[in-house]
Design a binder for these strands. Sequence first.
DNA 1: CACCGAACTGACCGCTCGGTCAGATCCTGA
DNA 2: TCAGGATCTGACCGAGCGGTCAGTTCGGTG
Lengths: 179, 179
Amino acid sequence: MVRIRTRDEILRVAGELFTRYGFKGTSLHDIAAEVGCSKATLLYHFAHKDAILLALVEPARQSLIDLVARLAGVDDKGVRDAAIGGFIDLVLRYRREVALIYDVTPQFLQEPAFVRVRELTDALVAGFAGRSADPNDQTAAKVLLAGIAAVVIDDKRDEVELRPALVAVARRALIPGKD
Amino acid sequence: MVRIRTRDEILRVAGELFTRYGFKGTSLHDIAAEVGCSKATLLYHFAHKDAILLALVEPARQSLIDLVARLAGVDDKGVRDAAIGGFIDLVLRYRREVALIYDVTPQFLQEPAFVRVRELTDALVAGFAGRSADPNDQTAAKVLLAGIAAVVIDDKRDEVELRPALVAVARRALIPGKD
DNA sequence: CACCGAACTGACCGCTCGGTCAGATCCTGA
DNA sequence: TCAGGATCTGACCGAGCGGTCAGTTCGGTG
């Protein structure tokens, strides 16, 4: 294998195994065996095991930050649709990483990279709820966010087909005055 | 502590730690320390670590089996509402256990107690989708099921308040002819 | 061709893991 | 009061964990 590709291969394999078996359920040995290298190689490219996970989710985390920053500039009237569209685009682009972020956040709350994830998720909930203070709207928002993140990872359809389906279910569930 | 209560205390503490840190992220040492007993005590009451998890989720798993059996006897017209109501009641009763079942199912697929969980979940998806073959209806069903299971565990409100909110969001998202 | 930095490795480390077991303690019933 | 079953424990086990490091190999440059 071309050496410059080892780091990318480590991330690809780690992403797959972390998603399938969980972060704690995946060992350095597992990753090395699947990549076809040694544990020491993993730790040559990444400072430690946590660093693999952090590198893996960093693009998605950064996109999440960008999305929330964009939503801050949208008025109350349009924020819900902007949040729905933006989040679905994010999840379709980073299917596995978003699921991983949801999965490991409770256990990495002390990690600087994750400290803000709770704030970011709160901001998304606010966007999905149209900035409503009604706890029922917020519960609905959380259900859709968690559900979309959980389901996209297993859905084999591509984003051209999947996106409108997700947007439709989110809008039906969240846009008021329709029931 | 009264000795006959040790087993129940082990299950209560294990449930809390498994939910917060994941099954793999919780050790026998962690559980024993929180209960205030030894690892050997845990293994006196339960054959092995997996047995603690299985005992914990067994009531919820059995209720899931019962729900799916009841849904089999409901016609296509009424199955969606029956599935929504039945699942939400189940989740409100076993908040933590249902989330645990969702969390650990991928890693316990070989376990006899879990072999059927995938079938049961598929049956619930069918119920939530009103037995529709449309992949968009099935995606919507999966989003709501996963979202409800994930969110109920953190929602502090009691079931009198929470149940109608969840039923409403599920019906808006899933009942056709409303958009 | 030689040198040097990058990339990689096998052997090893200390620690934690799930689990065992001989023995101690507790509780109940006769 | 005593015997026996239930409950509990500390010390220990083998295995796997994350990680280190001296040494090897590879690739690029002068």
